[in-house]
Design a protein around this nucleic acid. Structure first.
Length: 207
DNA sequence: AAGAAGATTCGCT
DNA sequence: GCGAATCTTCTTA
């Protein structure tokens, strides 16, 4: 039977820190099929994560590569914290930290399938098109009301921004080089749910 | 002090 | 497909 992913009657189990892998590669795969939830006032925004990118230790494209600074400090928190930064003047990127405290690494959330709060997301995004609400990291952040206020939040605390497991079986996960990078462009560090139309990037990367 | 680059998006051709 | 928008951070191109 087809699983209904549009119903608000959805079983969302809050992920605890002990549920998370303590490894950047494993975290990037693990997050595919999980749900990102942001409770803003009385409205719940939620979306199923369908695409991620790993920025592991030693990656010269990673923001932690040259050590800890005020901007990237959140990357050095325990696994399951949010690292949010602004790029190109107007876009926010949401990452989930993925290594033990003191080690800077994370996973970028690149695309998601909207579940709850779709009307609100449409307003934030300025478009009705479901497929475009969170397809791309900047769009995902805008749809989910993620900005610098979310930087450093613990996604495993009882806060408004959290991760959930639906209990559904994960679909097959594909891998490819990352998108939009010059450094380390050869590495296979992007993960996506195969065949999911909410995944971003060119078709050639989504086989 | 100034300039380039950047984990992107949107609108136009 | 291409280029502008937009602004913070890091480098000295």
């Amino acid at each position: 039977m087809e699983i209904d992913r549009t119903s608000v009657q959805r079983a969302l189990r809050r992920l605890r820190r002990t549920d998370l892998p303590i490894d950047t590669f494993a975290m990037a795969r693990f997050l595919i099929g999980k749900v990102l939830v942001h409770d803003v006032r009385t409205c719940r925004l939620s979306a199923r994560i369908v695409e991620s990118e790993a920025y592991p230790v030693g990656d010269s494209a990673g923001h932690a590569f040259r050590g800890k600074t005020p901007r990237n400090a959140s990357l050095f928190l325990e696994p399951g914290h949010a690292y949010v930064y602004r790029v190109y003047g107007s876009c926010f990127m949401l990452n989930v930290t993925s290594e033990p405290a003191g080690i800077g690494a994370g996973v970028l959330l690149r695309a998601a399938q909207p579940l709850d709060g779709i009307e609100r997301m449409q307003r934030y995004r300025g478009t009705e098109r479901l497929i475009d609400l969170a397809r791309g990291p900047g769009r995902l952040a805008e749809a989910m009301a993620i900005d610098l206020k979310c930087d450093g939040l613990d996604l495993c605390a009882r806060g408004s921004l959290w991760l959930a497991d639906t209990g559904e079986n994960a679909d097959p996960v594909g891998a490819s080089p990352r998108i939009g990078l010059n450094r380390e462009r050869h590495r296979i560090l992007r993960f996506y749910e195969r065949g999911n139309p909410y995944v971003s990037g060119p078709k050639s990367l989504n086989q």
